[in-house]
Nucleic acid binder design. Structure first.
Lengths: 117, 117
DNA sequence: TTGACATATTCCGATATCGGTATATATTGC
DNA sequence: GCAATATATACCGATATCGGAATATGTCAA
């Protein structure tokens, strides 16, 4: 066995920086391939290949428009990533530090109440 | 050139499901390698190798304890992932749909005010 | 119909990965 | 010092990737 396919899931698809860039551009709205080629400064075949991966994990949708193909973001495919990483937000967010203090306080008061009864 | 190294950044490190599992276990607190071996049902060398990758991207820290090594989560390394994916939350969250409606409303009122003056 | 344009696919060579297995390194207790 | 334990590293074969280049497919316009 080797490394998981880039098309295995959103995590793998999005590990490639160029593909994140593509999604960032598409966040601004539907775009034909050539716009992406210019925006990223990549060769056209590479862009088409990256788009294929993003399509396979459902992160983008395509629509035909004459000889062009318009790609559109489908952010929903990124939700699993957000869901997973969100549980670690506590590790760096000051907000949670404050919350922890409050909870600690409540716990302490509870313990005190217990002592008094 | 080939695919980026798994140690290139947190995105690549975390694309591997086993490594996410390891972090999930470590979220419960500091653990020696053997605990992870049992928790994941993986062979010890594979766990050590995954831990090396996580160490190289700063997602875990190690502490010596006799013949054991205690690994601890360092969630801060995941912040770039959170920051990136957060901007796409709008795509699936109902909350933002509501916000969009409100903003649309405000814009409409502004336009009306402009007409009246 | 021919040529220009837009996009996708195929082939290439280089490379880093994955799990498995064997082995190295270090620490403990007898 | 020796066996047991805990962990890391080295080697292997299989594989999927990456960018680059060439080419295929499809559409428009004159």
């Amino acid at each position: 066995m080797a490394r998981a396919a880039t098309t295995a899931d959103a995590f793998n698809a999005v590990a490639e920086p160029r593909r994140r860039q593509i999604l960032d551009v598409l966040a601004g709205g539907e775009r034909p391939v050539n716009d992406l080629v210019r925006a990223l400064g990549l060769a056209q075949p590479q862009v088409s290949k990256h788009l294929r991966v993003l399509r396979e994990v459902g992160a983008v949708d395509v629509r035909e428009d004459g000889r062009r193909r318009l790609y559109r973001l489908n952010g929903r495919a990124l939700k699993p990533i957000h869901d997973w990483v969100r549980t670690y937000e506590r590790s760096w967010s000051e907000r949670f530090d404050q919350l922890d203090l409050v909870l600690e306080d409540l716990k302490q008061k509870e313990a005190d109440d217990g002592d008094n009864e």
